[in-house]
Simulated scan of single mutants.
Amino acid sequence: MSELLLFCLPYAGGSARRIYGDWQAALPDFVTVVPVELPGRGVRITEPLLTRVEAMTDDALGAVIPRLDRPFVLFGHSLGALVGYELARRLEHLHRYPPAHLIMSGHRAPQLPTTSDNDYDLPLPQFRERLRQLAGTPEEVLASRELLEVFAPIIRADFEAADTYRFRSGPGLSGPMTVYGGVDDPEAPPDTLPRWAELTTGHCAVRVLAGGHFFLHQEQDALLSGIADDLAAVRIPRGRTTSGRAN
Rank of each mutant, 00 (worst) to 15 (best):
S2Q: 12
E3G: 05
L9P: 01
G13V: 05
A16W: 02
R17P: 06
R18L: 13
I19K: 00
I19P: 01
G21C: 10
Q24N: 04
A25C: 00
A26K: 10
A26C: 11
L27G: 11
P28W: 11
V31R: 10
T32D: 15
P35L: 03
P39F: 04
G40Q: 02
R44S: 08
R44P: 03
R44N: 12
I45G: 03
L49R: 11
R52F: 03
V53R: 08
E54N: 08
E54M: 00
D59R: 05
A60Q: 03
I65G: 07
P66N: 00
P66W: 04
P66F: 10
R67S: 14
R70G: 01
R70L: 09
F72P: 00
V73K: 03
G76H: 07
S78H: 12
S78T: 09
A81Q: 05
A81N: 13
A88E: 12
R90N: 00
H93V: 11
H95F: 15
Y97E: 14
Y97C: 02
H101A: 03
H101F: 06
L102F: 09
S105K: 02
G106W: 05
R108K: 07
Q111K: 11
L112H: 12
N118E: 13
P123M: 01
R128F: 13
E129F: 02
L131S: 07
R132Q: 04
E139S: 06
R145M: 15
L147I: 10
I155H: 08
A157G: 08
D158L: 05
E160I: 00
A161Q: 02
D163I: 00
D163Q: 10
R166T: 14
R166G: 05
F167Y: 15
P171C: 10
P176Y: 05
M177A: 13
A188G: 09
D191K: 04
W196I: 08
E198Q: 11
V208C: 03
A210Q: 13
H213G: 02
F215Q: 02
L216C: 13
H217E: 13
Q220V: 10
Q220W: 07
S225A: 15
D229A: 15
D230H: 12
D230S: 14
R235H: 10
I236N: 06
P237E: 09
R240K: 01
T241W: 11
S243E: 10
R245G: 07
R245C: 07
N247F: 13
